[in-house]
Design a protein around this nucleic acid. Sequence first.
DNA 1: GAGTTTGAAACT
DNA 2: CAGTTTCAAACTC
Length: 435
Amino acid sequence: MQAGSGQQQSAIPGSTGTPYNAALLFQAQAGQISGQMLAPRLALMPGGARTGAAPMGAGTAAAAGAQYRPAGVHLPGMGMILKAPPRKSGGSQKGRKHCNCKNSRCLKLYCECFASGRYCDNCNCLSCFNNKESEAVRQSAVEAILERNPNAFRPKIQTADGDTHPQSVRNAPDGSVRHSKGCNCKKSSCLKKYCECFQGGIFCTEICKCVDCKNYDGSEARAQVLSCHEPFNMQSLHQAAQAHAALKRPRMQPHQMGIRPPVLSMPQQAMAQQQAMMLQAASNNYAAQLAQLQSRQAYLTGAGSGAQQLAAFGGTGALGMQHMQQMQHMQQMQQVLPGLRPMGMQQMVQVMAQDGSVHHIPAQSLMSLLPGAAQQQQQQVALAAAASVVPVSAASAGTSSAPAAPAGVGVSLLSLLNGAINTSSSAAAGAGGGL
DNA sequence: GAGTTTGAAACT
DNA sequence: CAGTTTCAAACTC
Ligand SMILES: [Zn+2]
Ligand SMILES: [Zn+2]
Ligand SMILES: [Zn+2]
Ligand SMILES: [Zn+2]
Ligand SMILES: [Zn+2]
Ligand SMILES: [Zn+2]
């Protein structure tokens, strides 16, 4: 993948340490095969060490860090999600990845170092021949592979016009970057890094032969997976948690609460249905968000393995779901919240309990609505309030023709979903945080 | 960290 | 070209 030296000449410059030059071989081969790859970009990197090392090292330093792109799509129940995962900038800074080859001697494309035209450096490989000392052997291996596929050492992630320069690829608009051969995924839905398209941060294209692909523009499944790239957003979590709790709790029978089912007009039904869908979406997003929270907490506190900490900032999306299943929601929440308080948890919220009494509670207490929280005493209030949240809203809609919920009556779940948290203005606490 | 899953690369 | 094997990374637990 390393585009790094992929292109003919740019590879050579590797001046600094860039090992072998697939470039030269490339040219040689290209000569007899076709000029197709020769012509295009020679002008771009005149022998100099232009792109080669410099950019990778420091030049792109800024870009090297996990850079987030603003562009994204908005999904119900969740915030902005990135349209595409950070386009792989060939690993990170200078580090790149170290291989762990054991049986290929790092002389086959199985080896990422070799495949990207780099010598192994600080790798964990066994019986490695991908080094200066073994140049002879390695060279013949390269030739053999090039003979089979002249493009073997070209990065497969390219722009529409076949440009493989990391810089070009990075700057190219979403959708114009493609995998030169397409993937052939059968079981990953192209939403895991097993898929080269997904790993490269690009959408699958018509040349992909994947089955049940979810890696396309607008895919919600994909958005879900990538949600871990989002910056933390307390309100978004609130919404998701509320939705999750609301759906998980056995359907609340309005009758049991002494509230007659509201009669809804057609438009109201439509709206209710739409809101129900939003609720579901938000709830589905809860798991992912909580997992994200947890991993970020681990990062903030320095806990967790290195891998886990990395995951906090955009590791594999699947990781999130896994953690989710293993953790007890509430326990995690309690561990996580304290450390996150600075991020805007100071709000006070007005809620109406079952008996109609109105309570002012910290927004944080709303978290007690999470599944499993029923035990705590103080949180009983919040629980009771939760029980009435929906009915309050529904009742008001049904009884009075005025659809708008009476202001100040409390927090309606629906309004929560709409992002309109009814915070008591009087409540102190500057409530400033804000991510 | 050990074991499993996955899909590209290599091979027949 | 298709079917199989090999391989190292991604993933899971
Ligand atoms: Zn290797
Ligand atoms: Zn290596
Ligand atoms: Zn090696
Ligand atoms: Zn794929
Ligand atoms: Zn694909
Ligand atoms: Zn696909």
